[in-house]
Amino acid sequence: MTNKTIIRIIAYIAGLIIQALGLALMIRSDLGTGPWDGFYVGMCSHFGLTVGFWLIIFGVIFIFCSSYLMKRRPDFLSLITVIILGLCIDVWLYVIHPEQKGAEMQVFTFWLGLIITSAGTGMYLQGEFALTPADQLMIALCRRLGLSLTASKTIGDSCALAFALVLDGPIGLGTVIYTFLSGPLIQFLIPRIERAIVTHVKD
């Protein structure tokens, strides 16, 4: 196994763990979550179970949606990513309970979560293994409709926002910020993370 392969595996696993941490921080900020996470929290509030559980369930649905859009067999390897992400989110939500609830702490927690989530997404993508079902759907929309990565993610997140509102999920100003800034932020970070993690590692 080459050094580059080892680095990619580490980046893949670490990126998912980091992404889950960022999502949990945004949920705990009480300023509004990411659209899909708001939907999962809403499902959790209405029907029980955990946020991570609903993430995994809908991850399976996304796998089949992506398969239809791309006209190919479902990529069940992406279940690995959604299971890791779902379990990690539940663990982080169990661990993270900010003691201070002031406005400054809420804003800090949200922005920290947004940056960490975007960095984690950019990092795990460097692994070049299976995508999370949500990201797989984003890529499928990008290719099928000829959209940019930013546009396809914005469309997907906007749909999730509507579902979250129907379920009275934790939607707020932070949700709007995440919906329109996460795509550009990920796109901005990906080449920088790639240079830092991959390109300077010799085989």
Rank of each mutant, 00 (worst) to 15 (best):
L23S: 04
N3E: 05
L23W: 00
Q19V: 09
R8A: 12
P35E: 06
T33F: 01
S45F: 01
W36P: 13
S29A: 15
S29C: 14
L23C: 02
I13P: 11
M26Q: 12
A24F: 02
T2C: 15
L31D: 04
L31K: 02
Q19A: 05
T5A: 09
R8H: 09
L23Y: 00
G22N: 04
Q19Y: 10
Y12E: 13
L25Y: 06
I6M: 09
G22I: 09
D37F: 03
R28K: 14
M43C: 13
L49C: 09
L16V: 05
R8T: 04
V41R: 10
W36N: 14
L16N: 07
L21Q: 08
Q19N: 09
R8Q: 15
G22K: 01
P35D: 10
R8S: 14
F39Y: 12
I7H: 02
T50P: 03
C44R: 13
L25G: 01
F47D: 08
T50L: 13
G32W: 05
L31M: 15
V41D: 00
I18A: 11
L16H: 08
Q19L: 15
R28T: 02
I9S: 01
A11P: 06
L21K: 06
F47P: 12
R28D: 12
F47T: 10
L21D: 09
L16K: 03
G38Q: 06
G38V: 08
G38S: 12
L25P: 08
L31V: 04
D30E: 11
T50N: 04
I9C: 03
L31H: 08
L25F: 15
G15E: 02
A11L: 09
M26I: 15
P35I: 03
G15C: 08
G34T: 14
T2W: 00
I7L: 04
F47H: 15
L16F: 08
Q19T: 05
P35A: 07
T2A: 13
G32D: 02
F39G: 11
A14M: 15
G34A: 11
G48A: 07
I13M: 13
T5L: 15
M43T: 04
R8E: 13
V51M: 07
T33I: 07
M43V: 12
G32T: 07
L21E: 02
A24W: 01
G34N: 12
